[in-house]
Design a binder for these strands. Structure first.
Length: 913
RNA sequence: GGGCGAUUGGCUCAGUGGUUAGAGCACGCGGUUCACAUCCGCGGGGUCGCUGGUUCGAAUCCAGCAUCGCCCACCA
């Protein structure tokens, strides 16, 4: 035993993650176990590959808890599949995040006194590469810290040539198929980022603005001059757009204005005469019932303008100052112009009124600037047909969404989808592969050097100019599942690993990313890029608020890892969660998870230290012995059976994609079952020198077996501590060096009888402790105790008697078969279980106070039992219940009634009531 | 204006028809037991948001309502 102790003592008394995590990750890398075709991979090639697709994180910055959750979930899935023998592919990557990256870099260079303009396109891009080369290592390092078992040999970046080629080829295909087109349309312009953004990047924000009512004077048809006494009042929240007005609209059925339709009004300041038109988009109840129409700067007005063929006058420059069309206001910032115009209207008596107005303002997701709708000629993807394919894939079950309720969200968005503006007036990203000739012909080319000549007129390349714009970042992200595997070439990786099995991400990017991957993937590869979409919830702060840098409530995953270990962070992020639901993250969860890792650590230390001297030492290198079935006691069989039950429960939880359940089941099984009862029951036999070696050996091998099973089951969630501990356990001959590629456990046979017996034992021990505590008996006091145990369980209790002595401080302990044989001296504690024949008497010299405590406890027990008995009797007296409920349920109720009746009788007798 | 989700002990969450609704944290009492004080034992604490319905039986299924959160939506 001394030698085994020495081995155990080589492990620190508490688990210190920092001492193991880095070294273990390096061992995994050295063993080359992460790649499906790695040297250390023990994948079974006959099994279907498991490919998981992760959202490549933005290269711009540090990872937050959301990334940590993504990595944890995906790593758990991959490790589980890997242990099951599937070839697994989890491909690491980074996204160039054009608008986000430029936003960050612009701020950085601003601090150096530079700007986009001062550097110019080429030097700006050089600076960007320099910047991301520094962030890149940091970000990849963070993924390693959390234990992500990514195949680093396949690391990709959305700006590498593989992605660039996929972008060119795919766009050419879409263009040739009529799914990409260039047109002038109203787009969302962010004056801060100086680019257009997609509808998804415009965040509607509730704000209180002002609704001004303004007089537009009617033009006298005879004189052609505005009539100072006749006007129509229009309401607006953006007075500066007056400068771009080209009509006033009223509802066709509005009696107030019917006569005015067809007349003209004079727009102030620009002195333009525009028609009054009738259109039923106008809401008669709102404002004055007359609407000014600014087709070039408002989405509704644009549609109205198209219906009525109105001129569209752009009044804003790229930086949201008024342009030359604004006359005297040219050069002013939009809000300055607004203020001046309001003042000027008031001065000339044309401001009828103003009032506060609750409204939604579109703001830029990135810069928070107010978005201005503007006319621009840009590239669009025709999403209608693509969305239909995506819907077919989910409706037909080719791809399923977990949790299922997101299917409705998916349906709704794809059914009402608008065309996707993919042009960005930015520099960092993939240049749109479109060239224009002086005659206005467009040539789209997938060649890296561009087209040799114009498709329209044959002019040479020298006469062609490439579109200056780049693609929306999400365009290249949308190609990720196949661009990373070598598409458009028919590579081995494409054949083997496409389509993927699971696409895992947060529900917040279901439209940005998931839908686009589906649409592009289906069109370009004729297959849905993944079979399952797993959506996780968001990690919020303890008050349920979204974490953000500006709020200062972000938790840095690296700090969490430093303080509690990667395993603890991972466990904390999974424990108590369910798919698609948000979670509040608090430090207590992390502490609890850390304690759990430590518990596992110490349980293993105990087992190692308890190795019987008759088993040869081996410092972890010794081969595993099988527990000798003939020497197993009830405790050992119970441990085996519960381990088997845990395998079943964990398998079920994985099958249900319920990782919160995986964590919960293992926490409960390891802590509350294996440690609290399994180890405690086993201790006595392991320390009993009177037994033959073979018995102690059988017990020990049982513990090692169970521990081995638990470590395997827990490995997907807590890879580091399980790897560290598994390394010091004796292994079977066919086990690999490392747990990461060990086989997933198979569920063994269950032993219902022994499970039931130990359950009774637990109840009895708990009841005795409870009674002793209630009677104020010193916990350490050894007291003579008598148990009555039914005949069938007698042998098991006999075997476990020494353990029961320890657990219940019951010494001497006597077992009886019949309850009437129990001695009942005055002052003894009676412990009565409702389950029939189990009963305990603790013979103690209880003082008056203690006896009172015991009496109060028994009174309470009697009251409870009487209440339950009454309920049971009422249920059974109900004919509807006995005739309609399933017989098994009725039978159970009868048994229960009988038990309760007996308990009540015994308690009454004991209390003399 | 539509849609989705949540509502269970002080807190964070499990629990999708069947005995007396669970866990962790927090709280109270006790503990120098040879794996672990990052621990061990015991305890208090919930009419499962509200109202109705289905059912022998509802936290669980249905309808309506309320509160909170989120998504979508062209009312100036």
């Amino acid at each position: 035993m001394g030698e085994a102790k020495a081995i155990a003592n080589k492990l620190p008394k508490a688990y210190v993650p920092a001492e193991f995590e880095g070294a273990i990750y390096d061992r995994w890398l050295a063993a080359d176990v992460f790649a499906p075709d790695g040297a250390g991979s023990r994948a079974d090639p006959s099994l279907e590959p498991f490919v998981i697709i992760q959202p490549p994180p933005n290269i711009t910055g540090a990872l937050h808890l959301g990334h940590a959750l993504t990595s944890t979930l995906e790593d758990a899935m991959v490790r589980h599949a890997r242990m099951q023998g599937h070839p697994t592919l989890w491909l690491p990557g980074l996204d160039h995040a054009s608008i986000a990256a430029q936003y960050v870099l612009d701020k950085l260079i601003a601090a150096e006194g530079e700007s986009r303009e001062s550097l110019g396109r080429e030097r700006y891009l050089e600076r960007m590469w320099q910047f991301i080369n520094t962030t890149r290592e940091v970000m990849l390092g963070q993924q390693r810290r959390i234990g992500a078992s990514l195949d680093w040999s396949r690391l990709r970046f959305t700006m590498d040539e593989g992605s660039a080629r996929a972008v060119r080829v795919s766009f050419k295909r879409l263009y040739d198929d009529g799914l990409a087109y260039r047109t002038e349309a109203l787009i969302n312009w962010c004056p801060g980022c100086r680019t257009s953004v997609s509808d998804l990047e415009v965040i509607p924000t509730a704000e209180t603005g002002t609704l001004w009512t303004i007089r537009y004077h009617l033009v006298d048809p005879s004189t052609g001059a505005p009539d100072p006494k006749a006007w129509i009042g229009v309401a607006t929240t953006r007075p500066e757009t007056i400068l771009g007005d080209t009509a006033v609209a009223v509802h066709p059925d509005d009696d107030r204005y019917r006569a005015l339709v067809g007349r003209k009004v004079r727009i102030p300041f620009v002195e333009r005469d525009v028609p009054i038109i009738a259109d039923d988009v106008v809401d008669r109840a709102f404002g004055t019932g007359a609407v000014k129409i600014t087709p070039a700067h408002d989405r509704d007005d644009w549609a109205t303008g198209r219906r009525h063929d109105l001129p569209m006058i752009t009044i804003l420059d790229d930086d949201a100052t008024i342009n030359d069309a604004g006359g005297a206001y040219a050069g002013l910032d939009r809000y300055e112009a607004r203020a001046r115009i309001v003042a000027d209207l008031e001065a000339r008596g044309d401001l009828e009124g103003s009032k506060p107005h609750e409204m939604l303002i579109g703001r830029c997701q990135r810069s928070n600037d107010v978005i201005e709708p503007r006319l621009k000629t840009q590239w669009f993807i025709r999403t209608g047909p693509l969305a239909e394919s995506a819907l077919r894939a989910t409706r037909g079950g080719e791809t399923t969404i977990v949790p299922a309720h997101f299917e409705k969200v998916w349906e709704g968005w794809l059914t009402n989808i608008h065309d996707w503006n993919v042009s960005r007036q930015l520099w960092w990203g993939h240049r749109i592969p479109a060239w224009y000739c002086p005659d206005g012909h467009t040539t789209v080319s997938s060649e890296i050097g561009g087209p040799a000549s114009c498709d329209g007129c044959g002019r040479g390349a020298g006469d062609l100019t490439q579109d200056p714009d780049i693609f929306d970042t999400w365009y290249s992200s949308g190609l990720w599942p196949f661009s990373t595997l070598g598409w458009p070439d028919a590579t081995d990786d494409m054949r083997r690993y496409y389509p993927g099995a699971v696409m895992e991400t947060g529900y917040d990017i279901i439209f940005f990313w998931v839908a686009r991957m589906m649409m592009l993937g289906l069109h370009l590869t004729d297959a849905a890029p993944f079979k399952k979409v797993y959506l996780h919830g968001l990690v919020k702060d303890p008050y349920g608020k979204r974490m953000s840098k500006t709020k200062g409530n972000v938790v840095d995953p690296l700090e969490a890892i430093d303080s509690a270990g990667a395993d603890a962070l991972r466990f904390a992020l999974l424990n108590g969660t369910s798919p698609g639901n948000d979670q509040k993250f608090r430090s207590e969860k992390l502490e609890d998870a850390r304690n759990f890792a430590n518990k596992l650590w110490n349980a293993t230390r105990f087992v190692l230290g308890a190795r019987p001297a008759s088993i040869a030492a081996g410092d972890g290198g010794a081969l595993r012995g099988a527990p000798d079935a003939a020497r197993l006691g009830p405790a050992e069989r119970w441990i085996q059976s519960r381990a088997a039950a845990t395998v079943e429960a964990v398998d079920r939880a994985f099958a249900d994609d319920n990782f919160g359940e995986v964590a919960r089941v293992l926490y409960e099984a390891i802590w509350s079952e294996f440690c609290d009862w399994g180890l405690e029951l086993a201790k006595v036999r392991l320390a009993d020198a009177s037994l033959a070696d073979a018995y102690r050996e059988a017990t020990w091998w049982t513990l090692v077996d169970a521990l081995d099973t638990y470590l395997r089951l827990l490995h997907p969630v807590m890879p580091f501590v399980t790897e560290a501990l598994w390394g010091v356990l004796p292994h079977s001959a066919d086990d690999p060096e490392l747990l990461v590629v060990a086989r997933w456990p198979k569920s063994g046979p269950r032993d219902a009888a022994v499970e039931a017996t130990v359950e009774e034992l637990v109840e009895l021990v708990v009841a005795i402790r409870n009674a002793r505590a209630a009677a104020d008996i010193a916990p350490a006091a050894w007291l003579e105790t008598h148990l009555s145990v039914p005949h069938g369980a007698h042998a098991a209790f006999e075997t476990l008697a020494p353990a029961i002595e320890r657990l219940a401080r019951a010494r001497p302990l006597a077992l009886h078969v019949r309850r009437q044989d129990l001695p009942r001296p005055a002052g003894a504690l009676e412990v009565i279980l409702p389950a029939g024949d189990y009963e305990a008497i603790v013979v103690a010299a209880v003082d008056a106070e203690g006896a009172t405590g015991d009496r109060a406890r028994l009174d309470a027990e009697l009251a409870d039992a009487e209440r339950y008995l009454l309920a049971a009797r009422e249920r059974l007296a109900n004919d509807a219940f006995t005739s309609k409920a399933p017989p098994a349920i009725v039978e159970r109720a009868r048994v229960r009634e009988a038990e309760l009746a007996e308990t009540v009788a015994r308690l009454r007798a004991r209390l003399g009531a």
